[in-house]
């Protein structure tokens, strides 16, 4: 047999992952951007995006994935997501109230409607996707650490 040189799973898994991972992210973005008109939203879409990166990590191993999205970047994105959400809420003070929906609401059931809700969804998705990915990475790294000690 050929010596397995690469980390991660077999060629079949890698190929399928390479083909599908873009669609998974796209689906996540779809869920986020339509959060205010259909079921879904920032949390669900964020989870899907995080899963796409976890998928990459399972198929290609952690080095390859962490090259694309380092752990630090994930934690920075997470903080940015939280701050963005808070900033949208605080910007409500321009209209006189915390969390005020200060952007024109538009026509219902259109993509560009509902004022700050889509923006909040985007902020939540940053927080959730980066946060879940960071938790997964932390678990993986922790496991490797304990294995080294033994």
């Amino acid at each position: 047999m050929i010596q397995e040189k690469h980390k991660g799973m077999s060629l079949i898994v890698k190929t399928i992952t390479r083909l599908t991972v873009g669609f998974i992210i796209l689906y996540g973005i779809y869920i986020i951007s339509h959060g205010h008109v259909s079921p879904g939203g920032g949390f669900a879409g964020g989870v899907i995006i995080a899963l796409s990166f976890i998928h990459l990590m399972l198929a290609y191993g952690k080095e390859e994935t962490l090259k694309r999205l380092p752990h630090n970047a994930a934690s920075i994105l997470e903080s940015i997501g939280a701050l963005l959400f808070l900033m949208i809420a605080v910007l409500g003070f321009t209209g006189g109230s915390f969390f005020l929906n200060f952007i024109p609401k538009g026509e219902p059931f259109r993509l560009f409607s509902a004022g700050i809700i889509p923006l909040c969804n985007v902020a939540i998705s940053f927080k959730v996707s980066a946060g879940l990915f960071a938790i997964f990475v932390a678990l993986v790294l922790l496991k490797l650490d304990t294995e080294k000690k033994e």
């Binding site: 997470e78 903080s79 605080v90 003070f93 915390f98």
Partner: peptide
């Protein structure tokens, strides 16, 4: 009355600003 939400805004902003910088 605007003082009331500050008790949530200030520490929350501080927490995530802190983790950023």
């Amino acid at each position: 009355v605007n003082i009331i939400p500050m008790f949530v805004i200030v520490p929350l902003a501080g927490a995530f600003l802190n983790s950023l910088v």
